[in-house]
Design a protein around this nucleic acid. Structure first.
Lengths: 155, 155
DNA sequence: GAGGGAAAGTACCAATTTCAACTAATTTAA
DNA sequence: TTAAATTAGTTGAAATTGGTACTTTCCCTC
């Protein structure tokens, strides 16, 4: 028999959905209007910028950004035409390829980062006390851990 | 000058993204594979089922589900062809229209609800202690309140 | 009670995302 | 050492989403 959610639980759950949706939209619109870039673009630029040689294998990048391979492939394709990244062949595993950050991509990231970080602060971090924010993070960490074994990002 | 995120803050923020993304995907896949329905469909069925007469004005429904009018219009159109809802004209305001839950829609909701609720429990509620879950909800509540005045769902 | 602006909803078009099929390279194992 | 199975990645078509323009109706003010 299904154990339904109590009113409180339901409320918490809906708050979670709403908070994420509004926040994500807000951040996306900020990036979009000021830098013509989506959060997805931004995330990829960040990941690339953090690595040695500013390059990551496509499959790793897909996993890191929680995107399907197909989606990432399209995404990187678009970013490539926009000049933000290039692709390079992988010599160790000739099936593979790297996404590589270009100078223009780096510039775009540098330009967009303040907008994004300020948005995260304004709409999330600064809205909560230190301990509230930590509690949020810790809870999410546990949820992530519980869901992470599941691998539904096959395609 | 931009105030960057500390390592801890960054970690919390990324956990938030990851937790939501994984959870959402999981719940969506459950509904999809077992009931051929998306979370968006489910949400709409829930909202409709909760009201007098099982009908809601399109614009209210859009607001409640955080969808743009355009998106909701498409969505309800699809659900209408699937037989889950119908549209009815609004006599008080002849510009408006109602989305109305059909019997089939109700049946579909009844069938899907256990799957969904169990998923929410298994992957979210039961993973946390009562107080952790409450903390998550409270934090999200505040974030929502802070972001809610912004109305970017115009179209 | 006429005109102008705002609101509800849809429709169309462009962009994104998903799904399934496909190629090519690698690994496994007989 | 070769055949089968797996893995990396891409592609193209179909489905979903987002933006904007458009129609109809309502509301407000004069």
């Amino acid at each position: 028999m299904t154990k339904w959610l109590s009113a409180d639980e339901q409320q918490s759950w809906r708050s979670f959905i709403t908070a994420w949706t509004l926040l994500n939209h807000q951040l996306n619109d900020d990036l979009q209007s000021r830098h013509g870039m989506t959060i997805a673009d931004y995330e990829i630029l960040v990941r690339l910028s953090e690595t040695e040689g500013r390059r990551i294998r496509m499959s790793e990048l897909a996993e890191a950004t929680l995107a399907s391979r197909s989606r990432l492939s399209h995404q990187v394709g678009r970013m490539e035409t926009a000049g933000l990244v290039t692709r390079e062949e992988c010599t160790e595993d000739r099936r593979g390829s790297f996404a590589v950050l270009t100078d223009a991509g780096w510039q775009a990231l540098v330009a967009a980062a303040p907008t994004h970080v300020t948005g995260v602060r304004t709409n999330l971090v600064d809205v909560l006390s230190k301990s509230e924010f930590k509690a949020l993070g810790d809870a999410c960490q546990k949820v992530t851990a519980a869901n992470d074994q599941v691998s539904f990002y096959g395609a």
